[in-house]
Amino acid sequence: MEWVGILPEDVPDPRAECVENLKLMPIPVLGLIPQPSLEDTDSVSLNYGLDDRGYSEMTASITYTLWRNPDDRSDPVNLADLDEETRRGIEEIPPWPRPPWLIEQVERMRYPQLWEAVRTTWHREPRSSLESLLADHINHILMNQYRQQLWPGDKPWDQHAPVITGRMVNGQARTVINGVDMPAAEVDTDPFVYGIGARLAGGGVVTAVLPRAELHRIQVRFTTRR
């Protein structure tokens, strides 16, 4: 259901529907291991493709809240670097009641979000290499989160060639999934993000794209998301 304008105070939290939709995923959804600096708030998006045989592909993407000082969430170091328009939108309280989940999401905008940081990708008939899927994930993050750093003064509708290609991926890396050391592929050369991914034993691929500036705070290990 889509809402336009003022949301009724009792409108359901859309994350509940998203969690239910994740049951359609043919393989387990992975995320980063639980750790103090990352908070998983069920901000998961699900994209899929359909054909006459049903679902042909699915991608689940997890967004995390980053806590630079998880022991004291009131520490100003935890705050995101916001522009004046965004800050004003958070501070201004409308004269009508809002759903509790919406208030929570608006307040969470004060803190850095690792947008779509981890992807679990499934194809009914695998046709993309791990390297190309990792490059796609990295380019998706760069185009949406680092556009102004890459192309100052750029317009949102301007088109650009991919920053990362499959040939730039190192296929000799390692990672840990559910406590098991696994072969992996990584991109450790981009100035803005670090990317890593691996094929899953049960089919599919997991990839993570993380801000290089925050990498020292994050344990880059995967686990099945419960």
Rank of each mutant, 00 (worst) to 15 (best):
E2P: 01
W3A: 09
G5P: 13
G5S: 15
E9P: 01
V11R: 06
D13Q: 09
R15H: 12
V19Y: 12
N21T: 06
L24P: 02
L24K: 11
P26S: 04
G31M: 03
P34I: 02
Q35S: 03
P36L: 05
S37C: 06
E39S: 09
D40V: 00
D42F: 01
D42L: 05
V44T: 14
V44Y: 04
N47K: 15
G49D: 14
D51W: 11
D52L: 12
Y55E: 11
T59H: 10
A60K: 08
S61Q: 13
T63G: 06
T63Q: 05
Y64P: 00
R68P: 07
S74H: 08
N78M: 10
N78T: 09
L79N: 12
A80C: 11
D81G: 01
D83Q: 05
E84S: 12
E84F: 05
E85H: 03
R87I: 02
R87E: 07
R87Q: 11
I90W: 07
E92F: 08
I93N: 11
W96T: 13
P99K: 03
I103T: 13
I103C: 04
Q105H: 02
Q105C: 01
M109H: 00
R110V: 01
Y111N: 00
P112D: 03
L114K: 02
V118M: 02
V118P: 01
R119W: 15
R119E: 11
T120G: 03
T121R: 11
W122S: 01
W122P: 02
H123D: 07
R127E: 05
S129N: 04
S132D: 13
L133N: 12
L134M: 13
L134C: 13
A135R: 10
A135L: 10
I138F: 11
I138H: 11
I141V: 15
I141G: 10
Q145N: 15
R147M: 07
R147P: 06
R147D: 06
R147Y: 04
R147H: 07
W151G: 00
D154R: 04
K155H: 15
P156L: 10
P156S: 02
P162D: 07
P162Y: 08
V163I: 15
I164N: 03
T165A: 02
N170C: 05
Q172P: 00
A173N: 10
A173W: 10
R174E: 15
I177K: 09
G179D: 07
G179H: 08
D181M: 04
M182D: 00
P183A: 01
A184P: 00
A185S: 06
D188H: 11
T189Q: 14
D190A: 12
Y194P: 08
I196P: 03
A198M: 11
L200P: 11
L200H: 08
A201W: 14
A201D: 15
G203F: 04
G203R: 06
G203M: 08
T207C: 14
V209H: 08
L210A: 11
P211M: 13
A213T: 15
E214I: 00
E214M: 09
E214R: 09
V220W: 08
V220L: 06
V220M: 08
V220I: 13
F222H: 06
T224M: 14
R226C: 05
